[in-house]
Design a protein around this nucleic acid. Structure first.
Lengths: 222, 222
DNA sequence: AATCTAATGCGAGCACGTTCGCGTTAGATT
DNA sequence: AATCTAACGCGAACGTGCTCGCATTAGATT
């Protein structure tokens, strides 16, 4: 694992100076990394992104401030690495019906963000993405990949004939996820079971109605 | 004056010392305010939230840095005020059918965020909300109010008998809005006509199917 | 086990954001 | 029009975030 971390995070175009920690990923370096990421997660759990500073991370982790700056440079980079690291794989169900699969995925997402700590990490990543371009790229790519993984649910439904063959799988998954992030970032309410249930049902009904077909958005009505 | 500035810039709970600009809102004060908000909007349009600083705002607006600090204290407060100020009323259609009304509202939202400048303001507000509690409150309340205004579309549909009487109007509007903010903040792609069309159709089909009813989320199927 | 050097610890120094006190301006009041 | 004072302009000073050079440590290599 981790034998070549070059190009792992931000934009490293010029082939100079490997990121500290990328050449000797063993023993001490790994401990430092773990200590910093753990400390960051704890700090985020307590105060959130607004009160997160490099100094607090350094103090809590026991790693020297200059070391933290050398390896990550900004709190945003640490947050990005933390998210990829936590990358809590939300289980992809396979029940045999799209409706149940979507509900399972929705409850997985809901369960994940019901934990305040995970919610804080997500908030921090989004805020970081607004401020730093590389964080925005990371966020975009990360979620694109996750949607691609989840798209298999819809492909199976297509094979079963539950939804139209030209259904845009990515859009279905995006439609399933969107309400959670709206609740998380905009309306800022609790993420509960009702949200998961409603969201899954809405995505299902829309998909069944052919709303997400690639060819025509509104094919079967009127 | 200036005998006791305690608590001026922070959270203002205690009934002391009015915010600068609130006592004499006329002439010069109004010009200063307008200059700062305009400058902030321009700065956001160019560099985004990440490169927004009090000093840039002061320089571009021609207002002295100390004055900007005294009246707003943080860029986040300026951003909040800017958003409330811009409060670009997205028109609420009244076509006689829920489907067309939802499509009209969606295209209104889509058209608004298709402008990079408006998109940047929204991004900044969300980022600000993650960092500062009062910005989070403002954001939550602001969007709650806007959803309430838009809920009339759904109420009319209920009266016409298009959807169930116990349909949760707020949830319908939230479902209509969510995909835009997901696109805006997470998947970070362009906000185009197709998104508006798909989103409106999805919300409509789900509402028709009874997904958003208050009593039971999944009433009419199976 | 001896050697090499990436990674870390340490503290000084720099830069920038932020605050403060005081004098001035201009809108409001009489 | 004379007076009052909130709001503003100005520059100095403060604090914090961030960087840099050097010594030390410890993982990797032979």
């Amino acid at each position: 694992m981790g034998r070549d971390r070059a190009g792992q995070l931000g934009e490293r175009m010029s082939e100079e100076e490997p990121t500290p920690g990328s050449v000797r990923p063993g023993g001490r370096t790994a401990r430092t990394r773990a200590a910093v990421l753990t400390a960051t997660l704890d700090e985020l759990g307590e105060g959130g992104y607004g009160e997160l500073t490099m100094e607090k991370i350094a103090q809590r982790s026991g790693v020297h401030l200059a070391t933290v700056y050398r390896r990550w440079g900004t709190v945003e980079r640490i947050i990005c690495e933390l998210m990829i690291d936590k990358s809590a794989d939300i289980a992809l169900p396979d029940t045999g019906s799209l409706r149940a699969d979507l509900l399972g995925l929705a409850s997985g997402i809901g369960g994940f963000y019901a934990a305040p700590r995970n919610r804080r990490v997500m908030e921090a990543v989004v805020a970081a993405a607004v401020r730093q371009p590389y964080a925005a790229e990371m966020l975009r790519d990360f979620f694109r990949d996750r949607r691609r993984e989840a798209a298999v649910l819809v492909r199976r439904a297509i094979e079963r004939g539950e939804v139209a063959a030209d259904t845009d799988t990515d859009v279905v998954i995006a439609a399933l996820g969107a309400p959670f992030y709206y609740r998380l970032l905009v309306s800022r309410g609790p993420i509960d079971w009702h949200l998961a249930e409603t969201t899954a049902a809405a995505a299902y009904e829309a998909a069944r109605a052919g709303v997400f077909r690639r060819a025509a958005a509104d094919a079967d009505e009127g």
